[in-house]
Design a protein around this nucleic acid. Structure first.
Lengths: 244, 244
DNA sequence: GTCTATAGCATGATAGAC
DNA sequence: GTCTATCATGCTATAGAC
């Protein structure tokens, strides 16, 4: 999670080098952000267990669904006993909060970092699309979980999920509006275009199996999406990134 | 479910008039397609109960998830006792099969009916996009359920879900390839464009709450999507449907 | 901090009366 | 065909030893 200014257009390797998405770092941040939930005192132990538990939760919940995942199965998968698990969380729902909240934090930060300082609408759109895509690629289980489980959550958590969706959609919306006002984009319905952009970005992590089966790389997906948006927005300037 | 030839471009009311998606009709078809699952002999009774049960299942499962829905809650919602319910199905998983299989059948038939006989690639693409959109609009709870629950199903059912997704994507893919070969579409990556088209079509029923909140009608969504695809495919001919 | 053992309850499915 | 009553099982969460 760097605060360095946005590099010029990204490939996936450069993106991964520019941000620290290591599980340890993420779990350390989570540990300090949730002192009332996690009752373990020693950071080292807490971070290690948190990593195991979150990892196991994502694996099981993404396979059979969070509701169908039993706490026994989670313990087995995480290599902890029931007692050990319940020292980390108060109840099953806490898990969702932990996982979600951090994904939200990351999305805000990464999208902010990578679009910050870019004023040209087209370059800004490229940066937003590409960094969103790369972030979800790097943290796919996390985003898949959030998308699929958001609707089952207690109202408070669900509201957060809707808010972050709206927030990132607004980022796209505002860029498109800027571009239209600057006379660089065709006067499309910015709200709908932003929604559809989000839908295409989400499809990448929702159907990753399909895309892997047809051998589509994340760079190629991004290039296709950026080209599609260029055509829709009536822009002639070609993409600067390599279209592998 | 008519077999009449495709009408020229559709609005939603004409679509609904052309196909019979009444719950009774659908449940009658389901009843006759699953004689070994449904052990009730009198058609009238079976169809009425089936309608209640499916309706209640979709309502509860779409709210809290299928796994989290208890059979007791389902009975309450459907106005049946446990015994009454278990005369309709053998176990909880049968419910999924019933619901899914019919959605699949409908998708195949409607998309087939409404693109059949249209050879011009652009008109065919319009027809496929529009009828897919209208079908999912008419049967939203059904499609939402299928999308969200598919991954939790026993392998056989999951394979069906993947197959139907692939099948409809192929429909779009083949139309785009035809258009490219005919020199009417720009030479895009047809597989990726088909996937993204599907993603945008699915977003309509996955986030219907959002679209309702921003007052987007199904016709407007369709018009926007068709326009976006036209631009991407480098087509100049405007849309024939009314863009409300 | 981490374990085992268990309390207390809801679940899916069935039996048998009407 | 539909009901009520009941079974065995598996669940979340906790208590208490180490």
């Amino acid at each position: 999670m760097s605060n360095s200014p946005a590099p010029d257009i990204l490939d996936f390797e450069r993106f991964m080098a520019a941000v620290d998405l290591s599980q340890t770092e993420i779990c350390r941040a989570l540990y300090h952000a949730n002192p009332q939930t996690i009752r373990i005192k020693k950071e080292r132990v807490a971070v290690r267990n948190l990593a195991r538990v979150i990892d196991a939760t994502l694996r099981l919940a993404n396979r059979r669904g969070f509701a169908a995942m039993s706490m026994r199965a989670l313990c087995r998968e995480a290599g902890l006993s029931m007692g050990g698990l319940y020292a980390m969380i108060q109840n099953k729902d806490d898990l969702v909060g932990l996982i979600q909240s951090h994904g939200f934090m990351l999305t805000r930060q990464i999208l902010g970092d990578f679009t910050h300082g870019i004023t040209e609408p087209l370059a800004r759109l490229d940066a937003a699309v590409t960094s969103h895509l790369f972030l979800t690629e790097a943290m796919r289980p996390w985003f898949y979980f959030s998308y699929m489980e958001a609707r089952h959550l207690p109202a408070a958590h669900r509201a957060d999920a809707v808010a972050i969706e709206r927030e990132t959609e607004d980022l796209f919306h505002d860029i498109i509006i800027d571009g239209i006002h600057a006379g660089q984009f065709a006067p499309v319905d910015a709200r709908l275009t932003a929604s559809m952009t989000k839908a295409m970005l989400q499809d990448w992590y929702l159907k990753r199996g399909k895309y892997r089966a047809q051998n589509t790389s994340v760079s190629r997906y991004g290039a296709h999406l950026r080209a599609l948006l260029r055509a829709h927005l009536g822009v002639e300037i070609p993409d600067q990134a390599t279209d592998r």
